Amino acid sequence: MIPVPMDAKVWLAGGVTDMRRGMNGLALQVQEGLGRDPHAGDLFIFRGRSGSLIKILWHDGVGMSLYAKRLEHGRFIWPSPADGAVAISAAQLGYLLDGIDWRNPRHTWRPKRAG
């Protein structure tokens, strides 16, 4: 798990991103496309066209990190391009990384009665 600082914001870049981009290309997309500072300590998450791969860009104050995660089955739930960049919480990021719908997480099983 990525150690998300308490004061960091997590941003989902709406739409599709070219997953061939590396740190510099994604940092430039944050700066020019999203109008945000890629070195501010926030996490920026990008999704590829297939929906099964995401990349996370994070500057921790010392250096830039690039994380990638691919789901073996299913797709990551993503906002529409019309939404632009969407801010989510660290808890929602945890759901997203597990392949769970971060917009409306639900328990998959709940006991009907005690005993």
Rank of each mutant, 00 (worst) to 15 (best):
residue 58 W to C: 04
residue 23 M to P: 00
residue 102 W to S: 03
residue 91 A to E: 15
residue 104 N to Q: 15
residue 24 N to C: 02
residue 113 R to P: 00
residue 41 G to A: 07
residue 28 L to C: 03
residue 113 R to D: 05
residue 64 M to G: 01
residue 90 A to Q: 09
residue 11 W to E: 06
residue 64 M to I: 03
residue 22 G to Q: 13
residue 45 I to W: 09
residue 94 G to D: 15
residue 93 L to S: 05
residue 16 V to P: 00
residue 30 V to N: 04
residue 97 L to H: 05
residue 16 V to W: 06
residue 18 D to N: 12
residue 108 T to R: 13
residue 29 Q to L: 15
residue 53 L to P: 00
residue 66 L to E: 05
residue 30 V to C: 06
residue 32 E to Q: 13
residue 99 G to P: 00
residue 8 A to Y: 11
residue 113 R to I: 04
residue 56 I to V: 15
residue 110 R to H: 12
residue 81 P to T: 01
residue 70 R to D: 05
residue 109 W to P: 01
residue 102 W to D: 01
residue 45 I to Q: 07
residue 33 G to F: 03
residue 28 L to W: 08
residue 53 L to I: 14
residue 82 A to T: 02
residue 48 G to H: 11
residue 50 S to H: 14
residue 74 G to Q: 09
residue 65 S to R: 11
residue 2 I to H: 11
residue 27 A to M: 09
residue 63 G to Y: 08
residue 76 F to S: 04
residue 5 P to K: 14
residue 71 L to P: 00
residue 58 W to A: 06
residue 21 R to M: 15
residue 64 M to C: 07
residue 112 K to E: 10
residue 23 M to N: 03
residue 50 S to N: 11
residue 89 S to H: 09
residue 8 A to W: 07
residue 56 I to T: 15
residue 46 F to K: 06
residue 95 Y to I: 03
residue 55 K to Y: 12
residue 1 M to E: 14
residue 97 L to P: 03
residue 7 D to H: 14
residue 100 I to T: 12
